[in-house]
Structures are given as C-alpha cells and as structure tokens.
C-alpha cells in the first residue's frame, strides 16, 4: 500500500460493486453504395475540403493541374509507397518539385516546418457518415506529412469507404492491434475560438484536397 498506484487501485476496488450494465442497442447509419459515396463527398465538402473524383491511372496528372492553379511549388511525398512511386514517375517530366520524406524528422524539420507547400498521403479508408479519412501513417509514410504543409492531399479508394467508424473498426480489425498513430481527418485545420467565427489553417493544413479513386474506370 505504499505507492500511489496501489492506494488508488485499492480505493477503487473497495468501492461498492455494481454489475457492469449492458450496452443498449445503437445502430450507426448505413447507406447504399451510391449513397455512401455521395454522403462521403457531401460531408467532406461541408467541412471545407475539395473532393475530386479521379482514376487509378490518371490522378497524378489531375493533381498536377489542381496544384498548378494554386501555384504550389513543391510537394512532400513518400518515395517508398506505391502512390509515391507513381507520382514520381508521372511527374518526372515536370510538375511541382518533389520533396522526399525519406529521412528521420530531425534531418528534415526545417523543410517540413517552413518550406513545404503541400504533402501527399494515402488514406486507409473513408467514413461516409462523417466525411472522414482514415490515416494510418507508416515508416514509409510518416505522420507529419499530412500535418505540417499548408495543403494536405489525400488519396482514398472508393472501395475502402465504409458507412461509419464502428464499421471501419470492425472490418479493418482495429482491435487486433493499433499502429503507433492513426488519425481521422475530416477537413482542413480550423478554429472558432474567436467569437465562434470559423477560420481555417490555424495550425494544421489550411486546405484539404481529397482525390477519390473510383472503383471502376469511368
């Protein structure tokens, strides 16, 4: 009984025992495939994100033109991922400068914190109910590339969309093991701390560009 841990736990264990209550039924929403995609897009757009429907082969070219309109000079990318390789190949002949996130943060901090214009990541899934991207950073696709640059570009496959977070947790088997970090992203960084007036890009990206890769080629 001499550590705070033991004292806290022994007090809690001495509390009157109540049977753990049953959790009453609650059914998260579900959608048809067409509704699912429409809801996902509508919710993201309501959160101030730009959603573009793209093809698996054509997205790098499409992205190039989107970024050209915004005057983006460089993009942080993950060179060891499939999407990263595809991007590098497609932009070999021209496009924004590609900055590889291929070293530990400590060697890239200055670039990420103050020089990067945009960062491209994949999303492991999308959630229709709330218009959320499921980011699942890895050693090849680190955490900060979706956070430090003023524009975050996310690639998400339509086939990975689910109706709700509850469904995502189940079908992706989250309970079996969580990564170092996983993030749901539902729009660009925002705040309403000053007189409940919405302002974007307070600390994270000011813009979120979602490239939704169709299930079949149009």
């Amino acid at each position: 009984m001499n550590s705070p841990r033991e004292r806290i736990l022994s007090r809690l264990k001495a509390s009157p025992r109540a049977a753990a209550p049953l959790r009453p039924d609650w059914i998260p929403p579900s959608y048809s495939p067409a509704e699912r995609k429409a809801k996902f897009k509508a919710m993201l757009e309501a959160s101030h994100a730009d959603v573009h429907e793209v093809t698996a082969a054509g997205w790098p070219e499409r992205l190039k033109s989107i970024l050209a309109d915004k005057g983006v000079g460089n993009v942080v990318y993950a060179p060891a991922t499939r999407a990263g390789r595809q991007l590098a190949e497609a932009w070999a002949g021209g496009g924004p400068e590609l900055l590889a996130y291929d070293r530990p943060l400590e060697e890239l901090k200055e670039v990420l914190v103050s020089q990067a214009d945009a960062g491209l990541t994949t999303a492991r899934g999308g959630i229709a109910q709330t218009g959320s991207l499921v980011l699942w950073p890895t050693s090849d696709e680190p955490r900060l590339m979706s956070l430090l640059p003023p524009i975050h570009i996310a690639l998400v496959e339509e086939s990975s969309l689910t109706d709700s977070l509850a469904e995502t947790i189940r079908v992706q088997g989250w309970a079996g093991g969580m990564p170092t970090n996983a993030v749901l992203v539902s729009g660009p960084s925002k705040t309403a701390d000053i007189e409940q007036t919405l302002a974007y890009g307070v600390h994270g990206p000011k813009e979120l560009i979602v490239l939704l890769i169709g299930s079949e080629s149009p």
């Binding site: 919710m43 890895t138 680190p142 900060l144 993030v183 925002k190």
Partner: peptide, 30 residues
C-alpha cells in the same frame, strides 16, 4: 458531426519510423 482530427496514439516512435516522439508518458491523476 465530428472534430477535424481524431488522433489515436498507441506508442512512441518505433524503430524505422521517421517521426513522432521517442518517448510517450501517460500520467493517471486521481
């Protein structure tokens, strides 16, 4: 409907990972 970010942290930076804190501490307050 949801906050912009739902941040789920389960460990410090693992070997080979390029960012994230090298140590994570959880303080449980009574």
């Amino acid at each position: 409907p949801i906050t912009t970010y739902v941040n789920m942290i389960s460990s410090p930076r693992k070997d080979g990972e390029k960012d994230g804190p090298k140590a994570v501490h959880l303080v449980l307050l009574d």
